[in-house]
Design a protein around this nucleic acid. Structure first.
Lengths: 188, 188
DNA sequence: AATAGTTGTCTGGCTAGACAGTCATTTTTG
DNA sequence: CAAAAATGACTGTCTAGCCAGACAACTATT
């Protein structure tokens, strides 16, 4: 048996890429990512065949982590508003706790190297939240509006809220609340 | 007297860049933009010193055109809701009429070559709409929320609405209405 | 326990291709 | 013909990905 491929190094590359993307943008050289990860530039390609694949996997990993965090510790019972609020808090808290991850994800989301499949998988990760949203929408003023549209609106409000939270971190919690009330007024 | 620098060619480059960015992304070679504009690649640099400068000017031009279009034919009188709705319609209609311009602008907005100055100028172009929004917000449930935050929310809702309109153009007008009602519920 | 064999990982110098911007020259215009 | 615009071949630079060799981990054989 050969030396096993180190899982640690994979994570190191993923983390390094996140940091480097934030500071240098998506056009950052792979050599820099490798250096930041503490490996030789050639080694990067034993973990990810191409730069594009690295970016796709990174995007999906970030999105999945975000979605998982959002629905963590969410009780199955309780009224929908409280449940959505819990998710909202988890979501926005994550974004202030890991601003780099959010920034990198934002860059990647826009980049055209991210395939449709990756995007679809990312969307799937968000499914639990969308399901919750659907439940709430059914009795509200948006009951007739197509679900993807409502989902897009929620996402965009979350995005705007997190942007503002990042800009004025001291009042982050307060801004999160405002964003949630705005969302609630929209869908209920 | 020398030959005057052709304004037509400048526009041709701007238009070409818009199209090329949409189809090839921001990393498209300048040579391709020049070819698409019907000029030699070297000539591009008599109009724009660098690629970055081209992108900055393009971004600002698009943003300004969008903002100008939004407030076109808007009567100074009339109730605020109607006035905002007019702007909203102008805005969203422009985005469906010139999808490429919107797409290119979206790419540029995220790109880190766009300077803070350019962004500030773009923001200034949106001032009339923000002013209208401020007036409305003052008597609504967001009267205590910082104006930049409210502005960001409006923008993000517009973005989500235009995205959905672009995806389902047949019902574009309907979707625009839904988006506006959502916005109105938010700020009033 | 020592050795050899096997297999896949890791390395970093290297290269082929791409691309922004230059510049000597040509063309256009007043 | 003067002065500026337009041209396109060219160049210096940068970088994704390659590859040949070094190395680590483990097994089989003695």
């Amino acid at each position: 048996m050969p030396r096993p491929k180190s899982q640690d190094k994979r994570s190191a590359i993923i983390d390094a890429a996140t940091r480097v993307i934030v500071s240098q943008g998506l056009s950052a050289p792979t050599a820099l990512i490798a250096k930041e990860a503490g490996i030789a530039n050639g080694s990067l390609f034993t973990y990810f065949a191409t730069k594009t694949e690295l970016y796709n996997q990174l995007y999906l990993e970030l999105k999945t982590e975000m979605a998982r965090t959002a629905i963590k510790n969410m009780p199955a019972d309780g009224n929908p508003r409280d449940r959505l609020f819990t998710a909202w808090q988890n979501w926005t808290t994550w974004s202030t706790k890991y601003p780099d991850k959010r920034k990198a994800m934002g860059q990647l989301a826009v980049c055209d190297e991210i395939t449709a499949e990756t995007r679809a998988a990312g969307h799937r990760a968000m499914q639990p939240i969308v399901g919750l949203l659907e439940e709430i929408r059914a009795n509200g003023s948006m009951s007739k509006v197509p679900m993807p549209f409502v989902g897009g609106l929620m996402n965009s409000i979350a995005e705007a809220t997190m942007d503002y939270m990042a800009q004025d971190p001291k009042k982050a919690k307060e801004h999160a609340k405002v964003g949630f009330e705005a969302l609630w007024r929209l869908i209920s």
